[in-house]
Nucleic acid binder design. Structure first.
Lengths: 189, 189
DNA sequence: TCCATGGTAGAACGATCGTTCTCCTCGATC
DNA sequence: GATCGAGGAGAACGATCGTTCTACCATGGA
């Protein structure tokens, strides 16, 4: 059975995603990617023009996959309030999962200095999507300024992720959750 | 007048600090450092065993300098409450300052995958110092659990910095400040 | 049967990396 | 005045980077 053309591309993306998430873009050499994925150099360059092009594709896929996963997990909560608080429980589970290395997009922003770099745009867009999702939730609350609340909640989410990554303090998810609880109480008055 | 031996070392550190902060450790080549600083390769390697060794020194100096600056700026507030809220005003000023590129230590955590790497330890310690400072402030409040409050405030600080860096949203400092205000109101009851 | 296609293996290119080296200059100290 | 150490300019080393190339293999449709 001949492999479908898309299979090779996906194997490249899946392997590169793991390598980039674990070690970063710079530390992921094409040589390492070839050896780890079992895909030849020629095939890699058939599907991607350059390494940067491939890194972009990897991050775009991760953006979609992560957002879908996060949304699905959080939406298991019943009320909008539950879903909002659920975000921080989901984060805690993520922190404690094997191979957790923080947010790939925050890491990318740390790696790539130029704010106009394509991968930085992807990172920016990713956080924008996250803000949009939180805004969807706060809109369902009977609060006066749901967008301001969404931004405040995003600060909590980003803070927890950053503390987990830099300090290794996974309890930051709990701290953020406590604050979120207070915010919700305040918003419902 | 012959230059004091320490002058060359400090020139290396000052130049490397700027380059690393702007572009990251990987993107800062020794070649670029030589050209930018005007210090010869030989002199650099006289004061630092390796590039990694130099990067460590750079981050250690920045840790001390940033903490001193942040502390001094925040302490201009009068009451402990003022100082705590002042943190976010100071952050906003930092975000809007020329050449702002986020927190060098969060960036380092994004660049260096290995959590046991020496530079990652420096980053971790830096955030620990920041937590200690915030704890000093919350201890002066008549609240029951000053350490928990300090951790919550640190989540807000890290969240604001991360949003400023990744999204370019400097208003995150204001969002974090609003939440901090609510936390203080809650703590003083 | 032939041939286009997608794949692997691996050599090879030029560029750049961190690091070391040689050769030269200058200024302070004995 | 001789000596020594700090520093500068730049060549050079081996390693590794991203990228391209050649050679060969396997498959499926005309």
């Amino acid at each position: 059975m001949k492999k479908a053309p898309a299979d090779t591309r996906e194997k490249i993306l899946a392997t590169a995603d793991q390598l980039i998430y674990q070690n970063g873009i710079y530390a992921t050499s094409m040589d390492l990617l070839v050896k780890t994925s079992g895909v030849s150099r020629k095939s890699i360059y058939r599907y991607f023009i350059t390494k940067d092009d491939m890194a972009e594709a990897v991050l775009k896929v991760r953006d979609i996959r992560w957002m879908y996963w996060f949304r699905t997990e959080c939406d298991k909560g019943g009320t909008p309030q539950d879903r909002i608080l659920n975000m921080f429980t989901v984060l805690k589970g993520w922190f404690e999962s094997e191979g957790f290395r923080g947010c790939a997009f925050i890491n990318t922003a740390g790696e790539v200095g130029d704010p106009d770099d394509p991968v930085r745009q992807i990172a920016k867009l990713h956080k924008k999507k996250l803000l949009d999702y939180i805004f969807e939730l706060t809109e369902q609350l009977s609060t006066e300024q749901p967008f301001l609340l969404a931004k405040q909640l995003l600060v909590l989410v980003e803070g927890a992720i950053t503390m987990a990554r830099v300090m290794g303090d996974y309890s930051a998810a709990g701290s953020a959750r406590e604050v979120a609880q207070l915010l919700l109480k305040q918003a419902s008055r």
